[in-house]
Amino acid sequence: MKDNIYTALRESHDRQRSLCRKLLRSQPHTERRQELFSLLRIELAAHAAAEERFLYAPILMHDAGLDSSRHALHEHHEIDEIIEDMQVVRKTGAGWLAKARKLSEKVHHHLREEEKKFFQVSGKILSETQKARLAAQYRKDFQRMHKALSAE
Protein backbone atom coordinates (compact mmCIF):
# COMPACT_ATOMS: atom_id res chain seq x y z
CA MET A 1 0.00 0.00 0.00
CA LYS A 2 1.31 3.41 -0.94
CA ASP A 3 2.13 5.75 1.92
CA ASN A 4 -0.23 8.68 2.40
CA ILE A 5 -0.94 11.34 5.00
CA TYR A 6 -3.59 9.22 6.70
CA THR A 7 -1.26 6.26 7.20
CA ALA A 8 1.36 8.57 8.68
CA LEU A 9 -1.15 10.22 11.03
CA ARG A 10 -2.60 6.90 12.20
CA GLU A 11 0.87 5.76 13.31
CA SER A 12 1.03 8.69 15.72
CA HIS A 13 -2.62 8.22 16.70
CA ASP A 14 -1.82 4.63 17.74
CA ARG A 15 1.14 5.84 19.84
CA GLN A 16 -1.05 8.51 21.46
CA ARG A 17 -3.73 5.98 22.41
CA SER A 18 -1.12 3.62 23.85
CA LEU A 19 0.60 6.36 25.87
CA CYS A 20 -2.73 7.56 27.26
CA ARG A 21 -3.58 4.03 28.43
CA LYS A 22 -0.16 3.55 30.01
CA LEU A 23 -0.28 6.94 31.72
CA LEU A 24 -3.64 6.22 33.31
CA ARG A 25 -2.36 2.86 34.57
CA SER A 26 0.88 4.30 35.95
CA GLN A 27 1.54 4.36 39.66
CA PRO A 28 1.71 7.66 41.54
CA HIS A 29 5.05 8.74 42.97
CA THR A 30 7.02 7.00 40.22
CA GLU A 31 9.48 8.18 37.63
CA ARG A 32 7.56 6.06 35.11
CA ARG A 33 4.50 8.34 35.43
CA GLN A 34 6.65 11.40 34.74
CA GLU A 35 8.35 9.65 31.83
CA LEU A 36 5.03 8.60 30.27
CA PHE A 37 3.60 12.10 30.67
CA SER A 38 6.66 13.57 29.01
CA LEU A 39 6.50 11.07 26.13
CA LEU A 40 2.80 11.79 25.61
CA ARG A 41 3.28 15.56 25.80
CA ILE A 42 6.05 15.41 23.17
CA GLU A 43 4.10 13.03 20.92
CA LEU A 44 1.00 15.23 21.05
CA ALA A 45 2.90 18.46 20.43
CA ALA A 46 5.02 17.13 17.54
CA HIS A 47 1.98 15.50 15.96
CA ALA A 48 -0.24 18.57 16.29
CA ALA A 49 2.35 20.93 14.83
CA ALA A 50 3.09 18.76 11.82
CA GLU A 51 -0.56 17.85 11.28
CA GLU A 52 -1.68 21.47 11.42
CA ARG A 53 0.97 22.43 8.86
CA PHE A 54 0.56 19.53 6.47
CA LEU A 55 -3.10 18.57 6.69
CA TYR A 56 -5.20 21.26 8.33
CA ALA A 57 -3.64 24.23 6.52
CA PRO A 58 -4.17 22.79 3.02
CA ILE A 59 -7.75 21.80 3.89
CA LEU A 60 -8.48 25.27 5.32
CA MET A 61 -7.97 26.61 1.80
CA HIS A 62 -11.14 24.82 0.61
CA ASP A 63 -14.66 25.86 1.54
CA ALA A 64 -15.64 22.22 2.09
CA GLY A 65 -12.88 21.78 4.67
CA LEU A 66 -13.16 25.06 6.55
CA ASP A 67 -15.51 24.02 9.38
CA SER A 68 -13.87 20.66 10.04
CA SER A 69 -10.37 22.20 10.06
CA ARG A 70 -11.41 24.90 12.49
CA HIS A 71 -13.01 22.32 14.76
CA ALA A 72 -9.90 20.13 14.73
CA LEU A 73 -7.67 23.13 15.48
CA HIS A 74 -9.92 24.04 18.41
CA GLU A 75 -9.59 20.54 19.82
CA HIS A 76 -5.79 20.72 19.54
CA HIS A 77 -5.94 23.95 21.55
CA GLU A 78 -8.10 22.28 24.22
CA ILE A 79 -5.58 19.44 24.49
CA ASP A 80 -2.74 21.96 24.82
CA GLU A 81 -4.57 23.68 27.68
CA ILE A 82 -5.04 20.40 29.57
CA ILE A 83 -1.34 19.59 29.12
CA GLU A 84 -0.41 23.03 30.48
CA ASP A 85 -2.61 22.46 33.53
CA MET A 86 -1.05 19.06 34.13
CA GLN A 87 2.46 20.51 34.05
CA VAL A 88 1.80 22.79 37.02
CA VAL A 89 -0.14 20.35 39.23
CA ARG A 90 1.66 17.75 41.37
CA LYS A 91 1.71 14.48 39.49
CA THR A 92 0.93 12.44 42.59
CA GLY A 93 -2.49 13.75 43.61
CA ALA A 94 -6.02 12.81 42.67
CA GLY A 95 -6.41 16.16 40.89
CA TRP A 96 -3.62 15.30 38.48
CA LEU A 97 -5.09 11.88 37.74
CA ALA A 98 -8.48 13.50 37.04
CA LYS A 99 -6.75 15.83 34.56
CA ALA A 100 -4.97 12.83 33.00
CA ARG A 101 -8.34 11.11 32.53
CA LYS A 102 -9.76 14.30 30.98
CA LEU A 103 -6.76 14.47 28.64
CA SER A 104 -7.15 10.84 27.63
CA GLU A 105 -10.86 11.30 26.95
CA LYS A 106 -10.21 14.44 24.88
CA VAL A 107 -7.39 12.77 22.90
CA HIS A 108 -9.49 9.66 22.21
CA HIS A 109 -12.49 11.78 21.18
CA HIS A 110 -10.36 13.91 18.87
CA LEU A 111 -8.67 10.94 17.21
CA ARG A 112 -11.96 9.10 16.72
CA GLU A 113 -13.63 12.17 15.23
CA GLU A 114 -10.64 12.94 13.04
CA GLU A 115 -10.40 9.41 11.66
CA LYS A 116 -14.16 9.02 11.12
CA LYS A 117 -15.02 12.51 9.85
CA PHE A 118 -12.06 14.74 9.02
CA PHE A 119 -10.18 12.11 7.04
CA GLN A 120 -13.27 11.57 4.86
CA VAL A 121 -13.78 15.30 4.23
CA SER A 122 -10.12 15.94 3.47
CA GLY A 123 -9.83 12.74 1.44
CA LYS A 124 -12.34 14.14 -1.03
CA ILE A 125 -10.37 17.39 -1.34
CA LEU A 126 -6.84 16.02 -1.75
CA SER A 127 -5.52 14.11 -4.75
CA GLU A 128 -3.56 10.89 -4.30
CA THR A 129 -0.38 12.76 -5.24
CA GLN A 130 -1.07 15.42 -2.61
CA LYS A 131 -1.76 12.75 0.03
CA ALA A 132 1.61 11.11 -0.69
CA ARG A 133 3.49 14.43 -0.74
CA LEU A 134 1.85 15.58 2.50
CA ALA A 135 2.81 12.30 4.18
CA ALA A 136 6.48 12.90 3.42
CA GLN A 137 6.28 16.50 4.61
CA TYR A 138 4.39 15.50 7.76
CA ARG A 139 6.87 12.73 8.64
CA LYS A 140 9.86 15.03 8.17
CA ASP A 141 8.33 17.83 10.26
CA PHE A 142 7.11 15.42 12.93
CA GLN A 143 10.63 14.04 13.36
CA ARG A 144 12.12 17.52 13.50
CA MET A 145 9.58 18.69 16.09
CA HIS A 146 9.91 15.50 18.13
CA LYS A 147 13.68 15.93 18.27
CA ALA A 148 13.42 19.63 19.22
CA LEU A 149 10.81 18.99 21.94
CA SER A 150 12.78 16.06 23.36
CA ALA A 151 15.84 18.29 23.72
CA GLU A 152 13.99 20.84 25.86
Rank of each mutant, 00 (worst) to 15 (best):
E113D: 09
E113S: 05
A98F: 13
A94S: 14
K106C: 10
K102M: 14
H110Q: 05
K124P: 08
G95M: 14
V121H: 01
S104E: 10
F119L: 00
H109G: 03
K116P: 00
W96K: 01
R112P: 01
S122C: 12
K106G: 01
V107F: 01
A98E: 14
R101F: 05
K102I: 11
A94K: 15
W96Y: 08
W96I: 09
Q120L: 15
G95F: 15
K117G: 09
A94G: 09
H108M: 12
S122N: 05
H108T: 08
L103I: 06
S122I: 09
V121R: 02
W96M: 05
F118T: 13
F119H: 04
R101N: 06
H110D: 01
H109L: 04
K116D: 13
F118D: 14
L97S: 07
A94P: 09
V121D: 00
G123C: 07
F118R: 10
E115T: 11
G93Q: 10
H110Y: 09
K124W: 00
A94F: 11
E114Q: 05
F118N: 12
G123L: 07
W96T: 03
K117F: 09
K116R: 12
E114G: 04
E113A: 00
K124L: 13
E113N: 07
E105C: 00
K99Q: 05
H110S: 03
V107T: 04
F119T: 06
S104R: 05
E105S: 02
K106M: 12
K99N: 04
R112W: 10
V107K: 01
S122Y: 11
G123P: 07
S104D: 06
G95I: 15
E114H: 09
V107W: 03
F119P: 03
A94V: 15
K116T: 12
K102H: 13
R101P: 00
S122V: 08
E113P: 07
L111T: 04
K124C: 06
G123A: 04
H109Y: 09
L103A: 02
G123R: 03
K117S: 13
L97P: 05
V121K: 01
H108I: 06
H109T: 03
L97N: 12
G95L: 15
K99P: 00
R101I: 06
H108V: 04
E113Y: 12
K102E: 15
H110F: 05
K99L: 07
E105N: 07
